[in-house]
Structure formats: structure tokens, C-alpha cells
Design a protein around this nucleic acid. Structure first.
Lengths: 122, 122
DNA sequence: TCCATTTTTCTAAAAATATGGAAATATTTT
DNA sequence: AAAATATTTCCATATTTTTAGAAAAATGGA
């Protein structure tokens, strides 16, 4: 991932409403969600929501498909994975090895590498 | 990591100059770097740089220590690791398992999980 | 103490981003 | 074709962020 895209994505996520939209779309999975539903859940006016959806779409984090008279938005899982890759490679410097070990160590023991308690999106 | 801190950190990284500062500090490692040096490398006026350093420090991504008449800034490696953890847990939903496998698969084969070519910070 | 060095705070102006109502567009239903 | 539904674009306003010069503060050395 190039610097420009990474900045675009970081910028898209760096907003309270937008990161909430993204989390809802991740939670929605492949079936996605539409503006009306999101606006209701987040209690945000439709025009404001539309603005943020456009922002997220422009960042490549989400995709839109017309389905009948609604537009279905889906999170691009690969893009957030790529962003994490970018942060690991470009922003973790020499200690990238340590981080990878962190992510892998409990895996070897057959445990979950990450706690599940806080996972609001599962 | 709570949502508020994650937003603060994402926001701090979502700026061209600031992410460059952060990368330089990661590269500098434990010995850190001072505003004068960073301003010269990035070709940014000192007052502007000071503004961004304050922003990064406020986000908890970097720390400052007075050393003689200079102030030495250091990247907090743990915080970027925590952010990655947050993104994995809160923004990768059901597919977090897939991501971990992605980070672990080549490890098992004794390969580097991430390419080193693009790593500007090593 | 006075001077040089380093960095910050203060400040004002410029630029970018966010908000939400009104109108417009697109699609389906009647 | 008209009405209903879902969403967007247009627009003006408000808010926040960024920029960088000038002055101030902190530290070390002569």
C-alpha cells in the first residue's frame, strides 16, 4: 500500500461517525447495509451520513452497489488488512519482528492471540 | 485500547507531516530525535513542526524528554502495537481469524510474513 | 551576568472539513 | 404517468485544523 492510500484510509477512519459506520459495515459482513439503516442506528441525518459514506468510499475502505432502490455499502476487509500491513511495515520499524511474534506466539499454543471480551464487532 | 484513544491516534497519524515525523522517530529508535533535526529533514518551519509534535504527544504516540537545551522526542512503540490490536479486534470483525492466519502462515514456513523491500523505516 | 541556542507559546490568517436543510436524481410501485 | 421511497448533490454556514511569523521561555556556556 502506498503512502497516499494509507493517509486516505487513516483520514477516513479518524472520525467518530465514520469509524462507527465502518464497524457496522464490518459487522454486517457481505450482505452490507444501506444509508437509511445506518442513519437510523447512528442517529445521524441522512445528508451528513451520505457525506461520510462518500468519504469512506473515496478512501477505498467501502464499496457501493445499487440494489433496487437502495444502495448497499460493504466494507472492504482486504483494505483494512492492507492498512495493518502498512502500519506494521512502515510504522513499526526494526521491531516489526517482535510484533509478528506477538501475533503468532499464542497461536502456536492453540490459544486466541487476541482477547474476545472487547470485540464489539463479532 | 478505548475508542477515544484510538481516534486520537488515528487522527494524529492522518496527516502527511505527522506520519513522516512518526516514521522518522521509529527509525531513530530509543535515542530519538529533536525538533531541529526533524525540521531540517522534513523541510518544515520549526513552529509548524512544534505544532505537530504537540499533536503527536497529545495522542500518546510520542514522548518528550528534556536533554540539555534540546528536547528529545521518542516514538512509543507499544502504542502503535496497541492501535494495530484495536484495528484487528474492533475493525476486522468476524474475519480476525483470517488476518491472524495471514500474519502467521509464512512464519510457519520460516519465511518473512511481510516483504522487506518497501520498508523505509529499518 | 550576558549571549547564543533550542524550542515553545501566542497570535492571526488561511485552508480544510463537517453539518444539515432544500432540491434533485434514481428506482420501484400503483 | 404519477406517487412513493431511498439516496444524493447542492449550498451556505459553522467549526476545526493548519500554517508560520514574532515574541517569549528555558537551558548552557563565556
Amino acid at each position: 500500500m502506498d503512502n497516499k492510500t494509507a493517509l486516505l484510509i487513516l483520514n477516513a477512519l479518524a472520525h467518530k461517525t465514520r469509524i462507527e459506520i465502518f464497524k457496522l459495515l464490518i459487522k454486517a459482513g457481505a450482505k452490507g447495509s444501506c444509508p437509511g439503516e445506518l442513519a437510523e442506528k447512528l442517529q445521524v441525518p441522512l445528508t451528513t451520513l451520505s457525506f461520510h459514506l462518500h468519504h469512506l468510499k473515496n478512501s477505498t475502505l467501502i464499496e457501493a452497489t445499487q440494489k433496487g432502490r437502495q444502495i448497499v455499502y460493504c466494507a472492504d476487509f482486504g483494505k483494512i488488512a492492507e492498512l495493518i500491513g502498512y502500519l506494521l511495515e512502515d510504522c513499526c520499524g526494526k521491531d516489526v519482528e517482535a510484533l509478528i511474534q506477538f501475533f503468532c506466539k499464542t497461536k502456536e499454543k492453540g490459544e486466541r492471540p487476541l482477547s474476545t471480551e472487547r470485540q464489539s464487532c463479532r
